[in-house]
């Protein structure tokens, strides 16, 4: 899953009749730049995507469908959905509270908190997975205590969920912090003077103001949660039908030369990415309209 956190905004230059701007390149250069960009996309994005789909359907739709009848594959899909369904609410709550506290209050250690939120982006997921091994693994810090109490974290579902939460926790917070900082607290204050309770203010004023950003953050978080490989790979233990998520199952199948099955599952992941991308584009479009309306119609 590629990192989708940087939205690309395109703005058409204002057309001017009969005038050539100094910043406007000659036509040849323009076409050259466009060609490079398109070629790059074709080679590194569309081609692999096309291969994933053709490989999956190489032996017909029946074989493709067969993949999903395999109990191990079903278990992997189920585990992935379970992981995402735990990860998203927890990161939603974490992201909201982190963004709220950063944007609306000032307290000592605030900049440290901002830096820490970014940590999962800068640390390799494999390293993150390994630290979980060191903390919760059999030879780890709490290993003996956990074993004595019969609690399994590593090589089990809790470990996978924890690793996924760690890797995906910046998405919601990062999306909301700038948004909430820009909006400040004045609308909330207005609601309070009008007699609204704290919760009511949050639900009727704060939340509507951040809903698109929040949804966008959740989408990115979801995409990453379902597609995460590195950190999960370390803590999962690759037990078929038990601790394999979709990406791990894909790897196993591929290593067994079971191309159709591997690519069929990959199609599932890729489709998820495409749906996410589509939704993201839609939200940006909605967002842009809202922003333009706010600025443009004074």
């Amino acid at each position: 899953m590629s990192d989708l956190s940087a939205p690309i905004v395109t703005r058409a230059p204002t057309p001017r009749v009969g005038l050539r701007l100094v910043t406007q390149d000659p036509p040849l250069a323009r076409y050259a730049f466009i060609a490079v960009a398109v070629l790059f996309l074709a080679l590194f994005l569309f081609a692999p995507l096309a291969i994933v789909f053709t490989e999956a359907f190489a032996k017909g739709a029946a074989k493709f469908a067969e993949t999903f009848e395999d109990p191990d594959a079903q278990a992997a899909i189920w585990l992935t959905l379970l992981t995402a369904s735990i990860t998203i609410p927890s990161n939603l709550i974490f992201g909201l509270s982190a963004a709220w506290s950063i944007a609306k209050f000032s307290f000592p250690g605030k900049s440290l908190l901002i830096t820490l939120i970014d940590l999962p982006f800068s640390v390799s997921p494999v390293v993150a997975g390994l630290t979980y091994m060191l903390v919760f693994g059999a030879q780890g810090l709490f290993g003996e205590w956990l074993a004595a109490h019969g609690i399994e974290i590593v090589f089990a579902v809790p470990g996978i969920v924890l690793a996924t939460i760690f890797v995906t926790f910046p998405f919601v917070a990062r999306e909301l912090i700038p948004l909430m900082q820009e909006q400040g607290t004045v609308e909330e204050e207005a609601a309070l003077t009008l007699g609204a309770s704290g919760l009511r203010t949050f639900l009727t004023v704060t939340l509507p103001n951040i809903k698109w950003g929040l949804l966008y953050g959740v989408l990115l978080c979801n995409a990453r949660a379902m597609g995460e490989f590195g950190a999960v790979s370390v803590v999962s233990g690759h037990i078929r039908g038990l601790t394999n998520t979709i990406p791990l199952q894909v790897e196993i199948l591929y290593n067994e030369y079971n191309n159709v099955a591997a690519f069929s599952l990959a199609v599932l992941l890729a489709s998820l990415a495409l749906v996410t991308l589509g939704l993201k584009t839609f939200l940006e479009w909605r967002h842009a309209g809202e922003l333009a309306g706010r600025v443009g119609r004074h």
Partner: peptide, 9 residues
């Protein structure tokens, strides 16, 4: 409020 703080949504 100074900048009115209307609920823009």
């Amino acid at each position: 409020f100074q900048n009115y703080a209307l609920f823009k949504h």
